[in-house]
Design a protein around this nucleic acid. Structure first.
Lengths: 174, 174
DNA sequence: AGTGAAATTCAGAACTAATTGAAAGTTCTA
DNA sequence: TAGAACTTTCAATTAGTTCTGAATTTCACT
């Protein structure tokens, strides 16, 4: 496969993946494009390479900056702004986790805490079963949240090592 | 808060959450509804409670069954089918992970393997840097995949215990 | 094998999200 | 402070997704 073809394929797949995860396709494509670009790109270049409009490029570049996945770079003596993606994929992944945790897990935990405190837990068995479901959910979501918190504070080696150890244990146990 | 109100809030939030994660709102709402329903519900009941059409209810119920989150239940002597959600949330979470892993991680690993074998790795430095990015990504995605595989094989207690241990270590280390 | 109750399908309608592009805004240089 | 170079905004449009409901099929019972 030729380099350009490989890049194209990578960008397309990354875009498709993004759109399954609530990230819009263009945003994921721009991210992919910047990831494999050897140099910072200007918005003109992004527009041209993905055949998208100025407005679209601008909007999605800003969203990427918002997520902490891309940053602006100024070349001295140039009016034009350039964009670079964070190239360390581990950091990219952690950044995505941090953001989604903040935007999504936190509100869910909040909601669960609220609905949990429903009236009539002392007499009504239906209420009791509802509370049981909610508490169950709260435990799991809480555990996942704690785990992600641990993960984002850790580094990649720690993760890889832990994983390795866990694998070994699995083998022993089975 | 009254029980009905709490259920309503739960269903709405669950629906909103789903739509951020590539699961359509109605599907997530039906799931939420069944999760907190004390009894199996018929599609008529689902339709009525969420004010959705027959077709929509049918389609999404089937999608839920497909994901392994809901199952049909027959009451003897009844033509009508009833639906129950898997109530063990841990299992629900694992089921979702299994599905998404199958549908999404596998194709990404495939794509990465393909684009990795781009021409010119011996002379062109741009090709080399592209390959480096892709390999980097492949490592992380592969690790995540392995981790999820481990996770789905384990049970909730194992996860909670491991997590607990990791927390303790963190404290000692810091 | 006929009946009616329930499940399924699917073409088009309704809704939602993404995109465009032109206009307005900003910032730099002279 | 004029105007060129670039960025940002946003109303209108286009594309994509979900939902509806009538038509069709399946099924259980007689």
């Amino acid at each position: 496969m030729k380099l350009d073809e490989a890049k194209e394929r990578f960008i397309q797949s990354w875009g498709a993946l993004g759109s399954n995860w609530g990230i819009n396709r263009t945003m994921a494509q721009i991210h992919a494009l910047l990831l494999v670009a050897p140099e910072p790109l200007s918005s003109e270049e992004v527009m041209a390479m993905l055949s998208i409009s100025r407005g679209n490029a601008n909007m999605n570049l800003r969203a990427l900056i918002d997520w902490g996945l891309v940053r602006k770079e100024h070349k001295s003596g140039e009016r034009r702004e350039y964009f670079v993606a964070e190239k360390d994929i581990w950091r990219v992944a952690m950044q995505v986790i941090v953001e989604r945790r903040k935007r999504e897990i936190a509100p869910v935990l909040q909601m669960l805490a609220e609905v949990r405190d429903v009236e009539g837990k002392d007499e009504n068995p239906e209420v009791q079963s509802f509370i049981a479901s909610v508490e169950n959910l709260d435990t799991i979501v809480g555990q996942a949240d704690a785990f992600l918190d641990l993960l984002v504070k850790a580094d990649q080696n720690w993760f890889a090592n832990t994983l390795l150890k866990l694998f070994k244990k699995e083998k022993v146990n089975s």
